[in-house]
Each structure stands twice: as structure tokens, then as C-alpha cells.
Write a protein that binds this DNA or RNA. Structure first.
Lengths: 167, 167
DNA sequence: TTCGCTGTACCGACCGGACGGTACAGTCAT
DNA sequence: ATGACTGTACCGTCCGGTCGGTACAGCGAA
């Protein structure tokens, strides 16, 4: 589907070159579509970013759900580490979208809603512990994107296990 | 000092309105200088962002140092929570600078170096625990900026105590 | 003391180019 | 042949950066 290809291209561009290279023509070219074609699917740059945000949020929600087995925090950790331990380009997508949405306060509103939901979601067990674990997972995500290579695979596995043990 | 005022204006603009409003003229106007005056102090937009990054990194390093009393992770937590519990505009500065630097891979290189240093810094006690605690602090920072109001003052205090207890 | 000179701080008009967005003609599967 | 979709030429705006200039403080020589 063309729409999905455009979204992929936008993310890839953002991950590899940053927001400065995130222009409509560049996205279109990367997606193998003309600028007109891009604008047919997303009627403005803002609409494109919104779609990026929506996809990111729903994909992560789906990842949590697929890892769920009684504990939200556990699912959060497993979903996060599965992504972070994989392709760096995939890890970077979250930040890429966040930075793109940072152009305007209105654009990051849906992200704000999602973050609040992710971190206040009720959970079995102790609430503070559950929140703490999710926060650490968030930190892992951030550091793995900002400074890839900080943790090797083994350290990542240790961190993950330690987090799961806390719950 | 004019230079400092410009840096402050740039951060405030970024925090309040996002990267879209971060233009040389807007920063200049906010700082009460002309565009020419701004460019006298920072010879390009990139130079301005670099200065923003440098100030951010050195200020946080100083905050860690001032809280240090034997444990790096403890100092990291205390420095982070002190900032996060304060003015939201100050909390937002970190992200503001990060998003500004996200325009270009080269611009965020110094940030990458700083993040790696912050999260691989040797510490007393168990290394994995120390890293975990720092990651959670990073998560607190992120969530408090992305979704302010997620935690009230009491919950913030509980999270902080729990983190300190882990060390 | 005043004259010329230098360096620092700052100003604001202006330019080239890039960007988001529009218009519209074309194309191709059904 | 119609409607979903694509390609391209083009437009107006805005942005980063340049540049010629002003103001003024200091300073050494005559």
C-alpha cells in the first residue's frame, strides 16, 4: 500500500537524517512517489505527521497487548526490549516521530495523551513499582536511540531480567 | 550578558512553541536583539544549537557533581528529580534542546557523547543496578516533559525514594 | 586635548533558495 | 469512460545568512 510506504519513507528519513531532511519532496522521492502523489494521501505535512504519530501509538499498543500475560509493566518491558534489541532503525522510529511532532505543540498532543496512558495504566501488583519499571523501559528506549552501542546484547538482557525481577 | 539572554530566549521558544517557531528572527526578537545582533554572537543557526547543547550538558554535569556523595546513580537521581520537581519550563529545556539538535545527525553528536558518558559512568556498587536507576531517572525526565501532570508531587517523591532504595 | 585608529557590539535591509502547497493534465485498472 | 491515483510545473512565503553601516569605548602619539 502506497500510504504505508510513504509513512515508512518518512520515518526512515527522520531516523537517518533528522528533521532537517524531512521535507515533502524528500519523503516522496524516498517512497518512490511524486510529491503530488504524496499530497493525494496526506493533504498536508501536518496530516503526515499525525498519521506517523497514530501509527506509532497503535503499533506500540498492539505490541504491549501481544506480550500481555497478567502484568502491564511486564508486557511494557518485553515489548520495549524486543524492539530495542532488534534493528536500530526500528528503535529510532519512536524518537523520529517524537521529534517530528515537536515542531508544534498541537502536533504532539496525541503523543502526550499516549504517554500519559502508557504511564498511568493500572496494573496488577504494587503501583509505584509498576510505574518505575515502565519508566526504566522508557529510559532504555531513549538511551538506545541517543547513544546506540551504550549497552551490548548481554547487558540489555541483564537489564531486562532485572526489571522483570522487580515486578 | 546578551549571549546568555539569546540562549535563554531560544530555549523558552523551543519549550513553549516547538521547533517550528525556532527561527533566528523569533529568537532575536524574544531576546530583545536584532537578527544581526544575534548573528554577531552565533555565526549560524547551527552554532546557536551547539551552544545550547554545550550549556545543557555542562549544567547537568554540574548538577550531578553538586549532588555527589559517593554514588553516581544517587547523584543522577537527585539531580534529575530536583529539576523535574521544579518549574516545568526548566524540565522542558532538556527535550527542547534535544529536539532542536535533531535537525541534523551532526548536531546531536555531542549529545550522543554526553548520553553515553552519563549512562556508562563507573559507579560504586552493582553496575547493572546503577545503570537501571539512571535509566529510570531518564524515563522520569521524558515522561514529565511529554505528559506533565502524570505524576503529582507525592508520587514523584515516592518514585525518587524507591530509586534511592534500590542502590 | 584632540586626532586618528582599532575592536567590540549591534542593527536592519536585502537576497537567494528552499519549502509547503496548488492546479491541472495525464494515466490506467476496472 | 469513469474515478482513483500520479506527475509536473508553478507560486508565494518565509528563512537563513550576508553585508554595509552605526555607535561607542579605549588608546597611544603629537
Amino acid at each position: 500500500m502506497t500510504r504505508g510506504r510513504i509513512l515508512d519513507a518518512a520515518e526512515a528519513l527522520l531516523v537517518e537524517q533528522g528533521t532537517g531532511a524531512f521535507t515533502l519532496s524528500a519523503v516522496a522521492e524516498r517512497a518512490g512517489v511524486s510529491k503530488g502523489g504524496l499530497l493525494y494521501h496526506f493533504k498536508s505535512k501536518e496530516a503526515l505527521v499525525q498519521a506517523l504519530v497514530e501509527r506509532l501509538v497503535s503499533e506500540f499498543d498492539a505490541a504491549i497487548e501481544s506480550h500481555f500475560e497478567g502484568s502491564y509493566a511486564r508486557a511494557y518491558v518485553n515489548a520495549t526490549f524486543e524492539i530495542v534489541a532488534g534493528d536500530p532503525a526500528v528503535t529510532g522510529r519512536r524518537w523520529a516521530v517524537v521529534t517530528a511532532a515537536a515542531t508544534d505543540a498541537g502536533m504532539s498532543e496525541p503523543l502526550r495523551v499516549a504517554f500519559r496512558r502508557w504511564h498511568t495504566h493500572p496494573d496488577s501488583g504494587d503501583e509505584v513499582t509498576s510505574q518505575l519499571v515502565r519508566l526504566a523501559a522508557e529510559g532504555v528506549w531513549e538511551v538506545c536511540h541517543m547513544a546506540p552501542g551504550t549497552y551490548d546484547a548481554q547487558r540489555l538482557a541483564e537489564l531486562r531480567q532485572r526489571l522483570l525481577d522487580l515486578i
